[in-house]
């Protein structure tokens, strides 16, 4: 990450770390939801922003992380933390499988987007039907408030854990952006033939990206399951999370390590605000998201992070 965006990110993170200690439950709820979407968006960004392939079905990873975390503990008595770890691993595996099938077939651009959407929808329909996931009634996790069980009496503790995950992935993203892997991701994103000519295994590079991406977004799903203790197929594999992950990245700044954080917080704040002022109209926040997406693509294609960068560059001149 370049220096101009580092300062606002640091300030933002400090604020986010301090707020849960004093805030009311509704504020913490807002914060946790926003951080979960941030994490899902960070996962999306590792694939779509860093390496290029636009996914429209990150729900496939989010839902897998959520269900693996939840099913392992409710049906097989696995420790919640271990279930969470297994959920992250499962996200990477599902990412690898979807990637292997679609990248090997040379799917790119809108074809890749459509195939990911199709995978997420198939997962949703299956999860809605099979007994393992509780089918259409969903899956309720038993309330058992113990830190060893990944459940906390204070909501603030959970907010800090979510923030910890976001910071960890932010650090990982910065490290990747500054590494050989990051250069390979960028090369594949910009021009696959040129990347090949320079010795980059394009398929392997994309697979690395989608496995990482799947794992991070699955972590978001696992956090969701532990925080709300309830899942059904429309939550876990619903298109809402695919859309929010993608939208947060585009609004926040695609391909920048901090973009997903800016985007998810801004979108969630706006969404809550509209619900507050026009709560009677169902779906009004989604209409607003649509308008923001159009506006962001038309007027600020580099997103919030990009605009901050160019603003500070202009300022110093």
């Amino acid at each position: 990450m370049n220096k101009p965006t580092l300062a606002p990110v640091a300030v933002l993170l400090v604020v986010l770390a301090v707020v849960p200690a004093f805030a009311a439950n509704t504020t913490i709820n807002f914060l946790v939801s926003a951080l979960i979407v941030t994490l899902a968006a960070q996962g999306w960004n590792l694939l779509g922003g860093f390496c290029g392939p636009f996914s429209f079905g990150h729900a496939a990873f989010f839902g897998t992380g959520a269900y693996v975390t939840a099913v392992l503990q409710s049906r097989y008595g696995v420790n919640a933390w271990a279930g969470f770890a297994a959920g992250i691993a499962a996200g990477a595996v599902v990412g690898g499988a979807i990637g292997w099938l679609s990248f090997r077939a040379g799917l790119r651009g809108s074809y890749f987007a459509l195939i990911t959407l199709a995978f997420a929808e198939v997962f949703r329909i299956v999860a809605n039907a099979v007994p393992l996931t509780g089918g259409a009634t969903g899956l309720l996790l038993k309330l058992d408030v113990r830190p060893a069980n990944f459940q906390f009496a204070s909501r603030a503790a959970f907010a800090w854990i979510a923030l910890g995950c976001v910071v960890a992935v932010l650090a990982l993203s910065i490290a990747i952006a500054r590494s050989r892997l990051g250069a390979q991701f960028a090369a594949v994103r910009e021009n696959e033939d040129a990347a090949r000519a320079l010795g980059i295994d394009v398929l392997a590079t994309k697979l690395r990206a989608i496995c990482l991406s799947g794992a991070v977004t699955a972590a978001a799903g696992g956090l969701y399951a532990q925080y709300f203790l309830y899942l059904d197929a429309n939550i876990a594999y619903g298109s809402w999370i695919s859309v929010e992950a993608l939208l947060a990245v585009i609004v926040g700044g695609i391909g920048t390590p901090a973009g997903p954080l800016f985007g998810a917080l801004a979108l969630h704040a706006l969404g809550e605000a509209t619900k507050l002022f026009a709560g009677a109209i169902t779906g009004i926040d989604l209409v607003l998201f649509g308008l923001i997406l159009v506006g962001a693509i038309a007027f600020a294609p580099a997103g919030i992070a990009g605009s901050l960068h160019s603003l500070s560059a202009r300022w110093r001149r």
């Binding site: 250069a183 960028a186 090369a187 910009e190 040129a194 320079l198």
Partner: peptide, 16 residues
């Protein structure tokens, strides 16, 4: 020519 248009010149060469 097939430059990585979104990267800087030095980043382009560094990929190699």
């Amino acid at each position: 020519v097939q430059p990585f248009a979104g990267l800087s010149v030095v980043e382009n060469i560094a990929v190699g």
